[in-house]
Design a binder for these strands. Structure first.
Lengths: 201, 201
DNA sequence: TTTAGGGTTGCGGTTTTCCACAATTGGCGC
DNA sequence: GCGCCAATTGTGGAAAACCGCAACCCTAAA
C-alpha cells in the first residue's frame, strides 16, 4: 500500500538509515528506507504520500540530483535534506527548488522529528487540496467540447442570447448545455460555477 | 519619490556599498545605499518599491534581524542576502522566512545583477497584483452594511426571493441593493462579481 | 442495421431578473 | 428644523432564464 503517509529515508549509510528509522519509529512516524537515490526513484510512485528525508552527499546520485528527478516526475512530497558538510550554494539551490528544509549534521533528534512532522502535515494539507482540485478537473473533463464552449462564455458573464449568437446556435440549445454543465459540475448556479473553477481548479 | 523601483543596498562596508552602487548603475539599475539596518529601517516606507540587497554580518543589526523587522512592517520587496561566511543555518532560515536569494561572496557580478533584475521583476508583478487587490478592497469597503449582507448571499448563489426571505425585506429591495452592488463593484453580472471577489481579493 | 450519445431546435409556460417611476422612513450633521 | 443619505417598498412591464416534452440529424460502436 503506497498510500499511507511515510517518511521516506534515502541515505547510503546503513547506520544512519537505521538510526533515522528507529528515531521515527519511537516518535510514531512510519518510515521506509532506501540506500540510494536510484533505488528510491526506481520505487517512486506518484501515489506515495508523506515526506522525503534525503542525504545530500551519497554514492551515485546526489541528494540534489534526486530532488530534480523527483520534481521532474511531479513529486509533491516535502523534501528534507540532511548534510554533513557546510555548503551554502547547495542549500540555497535546494530551497529555491522547493525543498522543505535543509538540516546540518549533527542535528538535534527532536528538531528533525518536528520538521518531519511539519512536513507530513504540509503534505496532508496539499493532498486534501489536490483531491478537491482533482474532483473539479474530473468534472471539467466530463464536459463535451460544446459544453466547454458554452461554459467559457458563461464564465465571461455573457447572456444566453449572446452566447447563442456567438456560437450561431439557438438560445434553447444554450439553455440545454447550460443545464447540463451545472449538472455535471455539481453546482446550482453560474455563481457557484465561477467559484469552483476559479477557486478550486 | 519613494515609488520608483530601486535596489536598496544595506551594508556597513563603504567599499562594498560603492562597488554595488557602481555595478548596478552600469547595468541600468537605480540604487540607493544605507550603512546599517537601523538606518534603512528608519527610512523604510511601505511605498518603497524594488528589492533589498542586504549584508548578513554587519555592525549593529544583522541582516537576518533586519529581514525580520522588514517582514514585521509588511515589506513585500524581495530581499537578497550577501554573505562572506559559509553559514548554512542562517541561509536556510533566511530563505524559509521568504528571502529571495542568498549569495556567497565573492560573487560573480553578472550573476548578482541577474538576481537583482529577477527580484525587481518579481516585485513589479507583486505590485501589479497588489494594486488590483487594493482596488477590489476599496470597492468592497464602499458598500453599505446592508449591501454586504446581500452580496454575501448573492455569492452563495441564492435567488433574490430567498435573500429577501432571509433578510426579511421585499424582493424589490434586494433588486435595488443588487444593482447598486454591481455598480459599485464595477461588474455587470453576478458571475463577474464572484470572480473579482474570489479571484482578486 | 440497430443502438447510443451528442448536438440541435421548437413550443409553451413559469419563474426571475432588471428597470423606470414614485414614495416613505429614520438617522445625522448643519 | 432642513437637507442628505441609506434603506425600504410598490407598481407595472420588458427581457431573460429555466423547464418539460417532443423531435431531428449525425457519428460511432455493437
Amino acid at each position: 500500500m503506497n498510500r499511507a503517509p511515510l517518511a521516506h529515508i534515502v541515505d547510503d549509510d546503513e547506520a544512519i538509515r537505521d538510526a533515522l528509522a528507529w528515531l521515527f519509529q519511537t516518535c510514531g512516524v512510519p518510515s521506509r528506507a532506501w540506500m540510494s537515490g536510484d533505488d528510491f526513484l526506481a520505487d517512486y510512485d506518484p501515489a506515495m504520500r508523506g515526506c522525503v528525508v534525503l542525504d545530500v552527499r551519497m554514492d551515485g546520485m546526489s541528494g540534489p540530483e534526486c530532488l530534480v528527478q523527483l520534481l521532474a516526475r511531479g513529486c509533491t512530497m516535502p523534501v528534507i535534506f540532511l548534510t554533513g558538510h557546510a555548503d551554502v550554494p547547495v542549500a540555497v539551490s535546494a530551497l529555491k527548488k522547493g525543498a522543505f528544509d535543509f538540516i546540518e549534521k549533527p542535528f538535534n533528534d527532536n528538531e528533525l522529528v518536528n520538521v518531519v512532522i511539519d512536513a507530513l502535515a504540509l503534505d496532508a494539507r496539499r493532498q486534501a487540496n489536490a483531491a478537491a482540485r482533482a474532483g473539479t478537473s474530473a468534472r471539467l473533463a466530463s464536459l463535451s467540447a460544446r459544453e466547454r464552449d458554452v461554459m467559457e462564455r458563461i464564465l465571461a458573464g455573457k447572456l444566453n442570447k449572446v452566447i447563442a449568437d456567438e456560437l450561431d446556435i439557438a438560445v434553447r440549445t444554450v439553455e440545454v448545455h447550460r443545464a447540463r454543465i451545472f449538472e455535471k459540475m455539481g453546482v446550482k448556479s453560474a455563481v457557484e460555477l465561477a467559484q469552483v473553477v476559479s477557486g478550486g481548479g
